[in-house]
Amino acid sequence: MSNIALEVRDLVKSFSLDGATINAVDQVSFQVRSGEFVALVGPSGSGKTTMLSILAALLTPTSGQVLIDGQDLARMNEKQRVKLRREKIGFTFQSNNLIPFLSARENVEFMLRLNGRLDHASRIRSDELLARLGLSDRLHNLPAQMSGGQQQRVAIARALIHNPAVVLADEPTASLDTERANQVVETFANLIHENGRAGIIVTHDLRMCQYVDRVLQMQDGKLVRTYENKKEIRELARGSIH
């Protein structure tokens, strides 16, 4: 049995809107093991992005617990959360992923610099990872000189290079065509599995679920269903289940 890299217990996030309290995340609990790739799906406003923000230590929950690699986010101050994001979390965003004035290689290496782990060996590993993602000829390109898919792959490399416990991806395929989206998520899934990281992808595109091990479906802030069966997940990805 693999280690539990991420654990969410009775998580609640409330917002006040026009005097009324709305639970964007409502009593959600789940676990993600190392080496497991999980999709968080649901319609707009279902709370999946809020959930991801909490998991990324960017948003404080109203109640409940989030444990990343055994560390409770609720017990951390801002400085400790920044350290956690740097060391334990890998993150890819929907857009504006990369530092625009750093090349592909520098963007990936920056994560190592941040962690004080940039050396000759890690540089080689960074180049190998980029090569694995089909970017060996793009090492010195700036983000503006790369396509959306290439930028997403650089972001994936950056999210994985420092061996984080958890890798979070927020709609990484939103700006990509189907073929590129499939390539990106498949590569992402492979790397998650190979490197033994816990991966969570937030997506509205159910077709991407074919690459994950488990699907968590959210609605109105609640976790309404979990798909663990391979067959069910395939059907969900094909659109047979709604």
Binding site: A56, L58, K79, V82, K83, R85, R86, E87, I89, F91, F93, N96, N97, L98, I99, P100, M111, L114, N115, R158
Partner: peptide
């Protein structure tokens, strides 16, 4: 702003 957001999100103090 987005660039600074990314820097902070990935762990820059």
């Amino acid at each position: 702003v987005p660039q600074i957001g990314v820097l902070k999100a990935i762990g820059s103090s």
